[in-house]
Structure formats: structure tokens, C-alpha cells
Design a protein around this nucleic acid. Structure first.
Lengths: 120, 120
DNA sequence: TAAACATATGAACAACAATTCATATGAAAG
DNA sequence: CTTTCATATGAATTGTTGTTCATATGTTTA
């Protein structure tokens, strides 16, 4: 975890050395933590949250989502791309229409846990 | 959900009417969805994720967190404020020092679920 | 009460992200 | 093959957010 020289530090480390060691050893790799933050960033936008909620009920085409959320098609399409890139949604094409649906169960679990926290 | 006049729409609603109704009726309030997105936004930054991970192990003072993450005290303090405002961390004062710790179990659950998704 | 230390906070700056607009792609129908 | 419709995408713009710097607050000790 520690790599660059420190600009400042307080006089002593308050925590016990074993705790500091425990933290350093249990800390996942920088890259994984970055990916994790990226994932949550995707949930951190109300438009995308709404899209995911809509897809809780059923697969749906871009146009329908746009109508349900009262937003234009382009905005929804851009956001679906973000959701797709994070593998939170999948899609299938049927003629001109593209149907989106939830990719897996984690989406529901994560959102539900968030809801529990918010509901408090 | 639908409030403003629509700028554009496709010719017909692809989904069946009952699905549209189901979505509209099961959709939480705008305000709740906004709060939910705000919550996830807090998880959507790798500095804050790291702070939370550090606190998984033990309560810790601001200075120690700053050292462990190799960042300056001010940056950590600002981020702790965000975490505090979302009630993800709590703190106790002991003399000059302020110790931060996780506020409740949701934090662990949410992060762990996110990890599962990322690990795939 | 002054000095020292840990933490908090406000302002400024830089990086980023969401939406809109215009337009491109790709499929179906005529 | 041209038109129409659904979706995707690039560029531009505007609003937001993380970090830094300087400084304030609040606690302890000399």
C-alpha cells in the first residue's frame, strides 16, 4: 500500500503495530479496489438506478425505458452502455429492437442492501 | 414517474401494458431512488473504499488512515466527512485524537457483494 | 495562557461525467 | 435500393467532485 514518500505524518502511529500489519496484509490489491470503486460508481447515478429498477420487472427495449423514465433515447442509450460495460445488464436483438435485461443476481442483492441502509 | 412532456417517443410501446403498469407501481419514490444513488456514489471512490477497508480491521485515527493510504490528512478528513454524512462510519473523540469506525454491518455486506461481482 | 498537536474546513483548481444535439449504424418494409 | 424506424455514438457543454493549500477549531501540556 505504501509506495510514495510521505509529505507529512503525525508524531507516532496511534494504532498498534499488529493492527497496521493486519490492515496491510488483508488489503486487496490497489487494482481490485479501483475496480470495486468503479463498479459502485455505476450504481451511483439515479438514472442508472432507475434503469436497473425497471429491469427488475422485465426485460425492456431502449425506447420503453426512455418513456418510463421520461428521458430521451440518447441519454438512456449512453447509460445502458455504461451498465453493459460493467456487465450489470445484457441484451438481445430482435429485429430493429434491442431488449435489455439484468445480467445476474448481484445487481438485485447490491441494490437491496443499499435500500436497507437508505431506509433506516 | 412521468411528469414532463415527452420530446420524442417511438411509435408504440413495445412492452405489454401490464408490464408498464407493474413497473410504474413497483418503482420506489423518486426521492428514495435519489438517496440510493447518493449512497452508492459514496462507495464509488477508491479512496473511500480504501478507508472502509482499513476500518474493517479496526477503529483508527485520521492520521493512521492517512499514513496507511499514503495520503495527506486533509484529503482523508474530507472523505471521512462524506462517509460520516452517509452514516457509514462513526467516530469517538479521545483527547486530541478522533477514532473512526464502521457504523453498521451494511457496509461490509455491500462491499462484499460488490467484490463478488468484480471477482468474476 | 501560549505552544504544540490532531483534526476540520473553505476556497481554488483540475479532472470527470451526464445530458443534449446531430448524425451514424443497422434492420425491416416497401 | 430507398425509406423508415430503433438504437448507438461522437462532440460539446455544463455541473459535479477529489485533492491541495492555507487556515481554523479544539484539546492537551508546558
Amino acid at each position: 500500500m505504501i509506495s510514495k514518500p510521505e509529505v507529512e505524518r503525525c508524531e507516532y502511529i496511534c494504532a498498534h503495530e499488529d493492527i497496521v500489519n493486519a490492515v496491510n496484509s488483508k488489503m486487496p490489491d490497489e487494482e481490485i479496489l479501483y475496480d470495486l470503486a468503479e463498479l459502485f460508481k455505476v450504481f451511483g447515478d439515479s438514472t442508472r438506478i432507475k434503469i436497473l429498477y425497471v429491469l427488475f420487472e422485465s426485460e425492456m427495449c431502449v425506447c420503453d425505458i426512455a418513456q418510463l423514465l421520461n428521458m430521451n433515447q440518447s441519454a438512456i442509450s449512453h447509460q445502458l452502455r455504461v451498465l453493459k460495460q460493467s456487465q450489470l445488464v445484457k441484451y438481445r436483438r430482435e429485429g430493429k429492437t434491442v431488449f435489455y435485461s439484468l445480467a445476474d443476481g448481484h445487481v438485485r442483492t447490491i441494490i437491496n442492501q443499499g435500500m436497507e441502509h437508505v431506509a433506516e
